[in-house]
Amino acid sequence: MSAPVKLAGFAALLLLVFGVAVAAGDVIGPDRQAPAIPQPGMGEHGEAVDPIRGLSIAEDGLSLAVAQTSPELVFSVVEDGAPVRDFEVEHEKRMHVIVVRRDGTGFQHLHPELGADGAWRTPLTVSDPGAYRVFADFKHDGTAYTLAADLTVDGAATYRDFPAPSVVDTTDGYEVRMRADGEALAFDITRDGQAVETEPYLGAGGHLVALREGDLAFLHVHPNDDGVAFEADLEPEKRYHLYLQFKHEGRVHTAEFTR
């Protein structure tokens, strides 16, 4: 067979393999491709803003090892083949776990407990079929990490389209309105038309998680000292799911937005 014929056949094979891979990705769910992680920016008051994280199961020699997902999520952070046991307190907890379906629905924020075996455990219920992303957000040796893994709930999944931009959400009888405050994002919370003063939650007036459309890159933003406001270095050309959690009258409530 001539060289040109061989090259043409090889190119056709590559196109076939690539087409199968794309089709498989469409079946799995929304876009999983991850662009390069941007470097940290600077907030309005000169402090460093976290880079986007949560695109990898491993970083700097640390890896996320998930042993079980239901009815209890069991996982370890592993370094050199052994579970890591020394974690620093960040936002009043040594470990924050975020679980969300690939289309941004089903958001959960959990705080597992570390066992004597070096494994973290927390009850987990995910009922809607589909592909989910699990984020382990923690601090180790003075560095903040977000490692992520996938889990799947069997069944026919119907993924929702990314919502239109929204700055107002109603949850549990509260109306929450998002607005720009300089380079920060601020949230005004009312109930029955009256302003609500939130109670401390995880060391602040609220807790905000931003997940980028498609790859669900994770941005754990920092709260300001004044009210429910956060330094959020969101890329202007990208769209995000935003999840605000606040505490009032002893209960934690979650409001969701699209930007």
Rank of each mutant, 00 (worst) to 15 (best):
R212V: 12
T69R: 13
A24N: 07
F18Q: 13
S70I: 04
P223W: 09
H222K: 12
L208E: 00
L15V: 13
F107D: 04
H207G: 06
F187A: 05
A186Q: 07
P51S: 03
I57S: 09
Y174P: 07
G250W: 09
T170I: 11
L244R: 06
F218C: 09
Y201Q: 09
A36M: 04
L15W: 10
H222M: 12
V167M: 08
H253I: 04
E237S: 14
R85G: 06
R177A: 13
G29C: 05
Y243W: 01
G115T: 06
Y240S: 00
T69Y: 06
Y174Q: 07
S56C: 01
L234M: 04
K238Y: 05
D137E: 02
G206V: 07
Q194T: 13
E72W: 08
G250I: 12
D226Y: 02
P30E: 04
L208T: 10
G250T: 03
G61P: 04
V17C: 08
T190H: 02
D137R: 01
V153C: 06
Y240A: 00
V99E: 09
V167K: 10
R32W: 11
A58Q: 05
H111V: 09
R32G: 01
F75Q: 07
G250M: 13
A12I: 08
D161F: 00
I28P: 00
A58C: 03
V66N: 09
G104E: 01
V196Y: 03
R212Q: 04
L110G: 01
V97I: 14
Y201M: 00
P200W: 12
A119C: 02
V78H: 08
T254Y: 06
T125H: 08
E249T: 14
H91C: 03
R251A: 14
F18K: 01
T158S: 08
G155H: 07
P163V: 02
A116M: 00
A67T: 04
G182W: 15
G41N: 00
R85Q: 06
A3K: 11
R179F: 07
D26E: 12
G104H: 01
L14R: 06
A186T: 13
D31V: 01
V17T: 15
A204I: 05
G173N: 10
L124M: 08
E235F: 05
L64M: 08
F230N: 03
G227D: 07
M178G: 02
L211P: 03
T105P: 01
L244A: 04
M1T: 09
G46W: 10
Q245F: 12
H220E: 11
